[in-house]
Write a protein that binds this DNA or RNA. Sequence first.
DNA 1: CTGAAAGCGCTTACAG
DNA 2: CTGAAAGCGCTTACAG
Lengths: 320, 320
Amino acid sequence: MTVSRVINDSPGVSDATRRHVLGIIEEMNFRPSRVARELSRGRSTSVTVMTSDTTLYGRAALLQGVEEAARAAGLQVVIGMLDSPRPAAVKAAIDRLCDPTSGGVIVIAWDVAGVRALRAIPPGIPVVAALEINDTRDSREYPTTALDDRAAAATATGYLLELGHRTVHHIAVPSSTRSSARVQGWRSALRAAGAPVPEAVAAGWTPRSGYEAARQLAADREVTAVLCGNDDIALGVLHAMREAGRAVPDSVSVVGFDDIPAAAFFAPPLTTVRLDFAGLGRDCVALLQHVRDPGGAAPDPVAAPPRLVVRDTTGPAPRH
Amino acid sequence: MTVSRVINDSPGVSDATRRHVLGIIEEMNFRPSRVARELSRGRSTSVTVMTSDTTLYGRAALLQGVEEAARAAGLQVVIGMLDSPRPAAVKAAIDRLCDPTSGGVIVIAWDVAGVRALRAIPPGIPVVAALEINDTRDSREYPTTALDDRAAAATATGYLLELGHRTVHHIAVPSSTRSSARVQGWRSALRAAGAPVPEAVAAGWTPRSGYEAARQLAADREVTAVLCGNDDIALGVLHAMREAGRAVPDSVSVVGFDDIPAAAFFAPPLTTVRLDFAGLGRDCVALLQHVRDPGGAAPDPVAAPPRLVVRDTTGPAPRH
DNA sequence: CTGAAAGCGCTTACAG
DNA sequence: CTGAAAGCGCTTACAG
């Protein structure tokens, strides 16, 4: 049809007919069917991101970045929730989300559910993974992105050590692996400085889980510095410290991860590591485009490197 | 084809051939094309939600509810970002998102961009709107959902008044209308009690905007109670009060809106109105299903009514 | 510059 | 119970 040509801005249509067709389109309120177009073109115009709880800041911000880049590229984004790490649930998600005509999937593999989903993606569909850590020894068949959490954790830990703290305790978010990038960075900084290496204490993602994890630490006067797996945990930790009568930062220093918009308004304002999740999301889309259309070099990452933002929850180690 | 019958669990296939086909499907790793299926069936299996910034808690939680209900109904959810209220941007979003074969759209019309998008949805495509307020006088051609923000604001305001505060100040989130539901409820409660009605002070959605809006209020000893448009704003307000040396709740009471997971860990823990955004999201999907398949009564809403959660930021008015 | 033909991968009647 | 035919609404060569 000629109308196909005009809605696609193809050349080879006279100005007169183009105007005529445009007029009729307007008049009939015609809109092409995306579905039919995809089927005939044989390529989808959507990218699906598989993730767990998008109410968590990191995932929401990454999603925002994905949406932005996808929109610029003319792609729709469908969101595929991973609500459980159980194999059956993961399989159901894959079956639901991965059809072969899909435009590709971005999986946020920061937790067990994500990692399992990643492994279960059927071959042939374009995929890029946002990992906790870019382990280059592990040669994968799909491209990956990651923020440098290891370096970030090491930096934060080193900062605390320089402040004179004997060691730094860590309250960890759940990880996709036995030892997350943040844990690794924290541990290696401790080792490098010859500081004692405490057990990391496990928490979830929420302020409540941070609060619960921190109660034991708060009771121990020996702990004077705690690095939290994210800012929400840090909020819970601050609450636990307050309850225990531990002044921050005079009695104990607290550092977070993420730099959520609220962090600067915590009491006290939180020292934290800023992570560019939105940039990471844009990088995922760029990489996915590259997978779908190879040729040309891989795109350069745009995500900003992690950066320690010093505010008011950190200070010199207390003198006994 | 017979395989169509087996992948759709249609009756009238012998067990033998069914098993045979299933075997081959497994072997070839065959997956049906969602796109082809939609085209032939003439009905889409996706619902798109149009919203601005999904990093904001209410939207993220509603999206979560939508996803959950959509998944249960076998629908995919595509997210359509409204990044600006400018008419051109809204039109672009509509053109991008609303094709006639779409399965329907849920628009979050809590802000100007959303309201404009709602108006611009082309006829013929199923739509349900999440509104700030369910104004029944306004007879619309599409179903709407809303939390009862007006009652919620009135309740919170009444609670503060009972505590002995002379009046209650309000820091408002942006609204889709001149006078939002929260503002209306706040104002009417004040009037009903014969209390003075101050100007509402305008803010954004973030802690920073709350902080900035609160600085003037903090300086005024006459203000002893402030109702915040959301919890993030309340966080900024708490910060401003701290900076101004106003003790909470002894010198000034603060109430939020939403009950985000962090609210219970603010310093002090925040008194706020809990809003069931996820339930609202599920209601949107149920309503959309009803639009697509009328027949039968409209579904009953499941979203919990707003509820005041009293914590530690509210107390009796200070005595002069 | 414009139109008729075939095909994308399914599903839905309709025959066997 | 199973298969051949037509069609969903586009696009992509191919003719005029």
